[in-house]
């Protein structure tokens, strides 16, 4: 049977180790303190500007586009429904490559900028082909 001893062995070593651990773990926070890069502004194409409104309001799209796309993909693939009618009654085909990227054909400036800033890597583009104009 091991004994439950209340004594702490090698106190100095343990505490020093803890301090080093905390310093290392928090390093990115204090090293970058006050040096946050300004959030990028997505660039709108002429076509997107001319449309004035996306499928939903700008605030909604900013905050919820990923959920919207998630619902889109399930509805298209699993429910065989491809038309999206927004509250104003306007109909869109639910398609990332063919609808979203038709207006926003500047993926690098519109999508990637923010995604890189937020350090998210959506793998949409592994399959869905971004607009050809951008890859040139």
């Amino acid at each position: 049977m091991p004994t439950n001893n209340k004594r702490m062995y090698d106190k100095g070593m343990v505490l020093a180790g803890l301090v080093i651990f905390v310093v290392v773990v928090t390093f990115p926070f204090w090293y970058n303190l006050g040096k946050a890069a300004p959030p990028p502004e997505p660039v709108l194409t002429e076509k997107a500007k001319a449309a004035e409104k996306c499928v939903e309001s700008t605030e909604f799209m900013k905050a919820e586009h990923m959920q919207l796309l998630d619902v889109w993909r399930d509805t298209v693939v699993r429910d065989a429904k491809r038309a999206y009618i927004n509250p104003e009654g306007k109909t869109y085909m639910m398609s990332l490559s063919n609808t979203c990227l038709d207006c926003h054909d500047n993926k690098a400036d519109f999508c990637d900028k923010c995604h890189n800033y937020a350090s998210v890597r959506p793998y949409c583009w592994d399959c869905h082909i971004d607009n050809p104009k951008e890859t040139e």
């Binding site: 939903e56 509805t75 065989a80 491809r82 038309a83 999206y84 009618i85 509250p87 104003e88 085909m93």
Partner: peptide
Amino acid sequence: AAPEPKVGRQPEALT
């Protein structure tokens, strides 16, 4: 209920 978005088939869809 606010005006809601809807999903549906395109009118030309074959089923």
